[in-house]
């Protein structure tokens, strides 16, 4: 943004003050040439924009040097609520591929895509091959809170789904950039191998987490808890997206005392107020897990996000 911004300022300068001659103009021409050359380094790459950082990290791994990847939501942001900004439209305007979470999580993405006016954009829904959890079977309405009618959309929180996402991204990159097929396929194979290796290791290292009873703040974690065998006793939100009420907190207090629950896990962006209340009343511990790459500084890649979360849970168990 910085370099391109300066180029544009120079161009405007020329348009408005084009009649200026001499040394001054020569200097500006020189600066303009340098900045264009610097910007040129980024040209020729496949430009990928993603809704969340997890898709961005996987796309970077698969795309390697042939892609430039940008995420709209930051890792420490609630992906349900992303303000549609014109600057996001400008990012998508220059993109070749847009990677959506889908399942109605990133509904805001459509407005960004429309506003970009990018007619050549390939839009890829990364949820298309996912084995979806919690798909409602009855009528869905606001009584159920912020429920998603196509199922729970936090599917990237299972490393096995990360493999499915990686395959979807590789297919999209190959269709846009067939010349890079060999590299994409090789990077995909390496990523799948890394996930398998990590999963085998984690199954042994974190076997003791199986059956651990705990609370989560929001229902973002069914794919994660299913994969690693954690037992979600209740959520702090009485319904998805609904802030905890005093009556619900009283119910949770009873559960904590009766069932000996010792841990609340939450995303870093939620308010501490309700967990702190339960902590003060019962001594229950609170941990913040990374729901996305970049949510905390230790979760700096897709696999490191799982390493961080599992280590946080294990260290609680060992206390």
């Amino acid at each position: 943004m910085g370099i391109q911004y300066h180029i544009s300022l120079y161009l405007i300068y020329f348009m408005i003050l084009g009649e200026h001659r001499g040394k001054n103009r020569k200097n500006i021409m020189k600066k303009l040439l340098i900045t264009i050359l610097l910007t040129g380094i980024g040209f020729g790459k496949i430009n990928v924009v993603t809704s969340i950082t997890d898709l961005a990290d996987i796309a970077k791994t698969i795309g390697g040097k042939r892609v430039k990847v940008t995420s709209i939501a930051r890792g420490n942001q609630d992906p349900h609520y992303v303000e549609v900004l014109p600057s996001y439209m400008m990012k998508v305007k220059r993109a070749d591929i847009y990677l959506q979470v889908g399942m109605e999580l990133d509904l805001w993405a459509q407005q960004i895509i429309d506003g970009s006016r990018n007619r050549k954009l390939q839009i890829v829904d990364c949820s298309q091959r996912i084995n979806r959890m919690e798909v409602p079977t009855n009528k869905v309405d606001a009584r159920l809170g912020d429920i998603h009618k196509y199922g729970n959309p936090h599917y990237w929180l299972d490393p096995e789904n990360g493999k499915i996402i990686a395959r979807t991204i590789a297919a999209a990159l190959i269709s846009t950039d067939p010349a890079g097929r060999n590299m994409y396929e090789s990077n995909l194979a390496q990523f799948l191998q890394e996930v398998d290796f990590a999963m085998n290791l984690w199954r042994e290292t974190y076997a003791e987490l199986k059956g651990m009873n705990m609370f989560f703040y929001h229902n973002s974690w069914p794919y994660f808890t299913e994969r690693f065998g954690l037992n979600v006793v209740a959520h702090l939100e009485p319904k998805p997206g609904i802030t905890p009420s005093p009556a619900h907190l009283e119910r949770l207090l009873r559960i904590i005392r009766n069932d000996d629950i010792t841990l609340i896990a939450m995303e870093p962006y939620f308010s501490n107020q309700a967990p702190e209340y339960l902590h003060q009343k019962t001594g229950i511990k609170i941990v913040k897990l990374a729901q996305s790459v970049g949510a905390v500084k230790e979760a700096d890649s897709y696999l490191n996000m799982f390493r961080y979360n599992l280590e946080v849970l294990k260290s609680h168990l060992n206390k």
Binding site: M1, Q4, Y5, I7, S8, P86, S87, M89, M90, R117
Partner: peptide
């Protein structure tokens, strides 16, 4: 019209 500038100008 969106101007062909790096920032959003309409």
């Amino acid at each position: 019209w969106l101007f062909p500038l790096p920032w959003y100008a309409k």
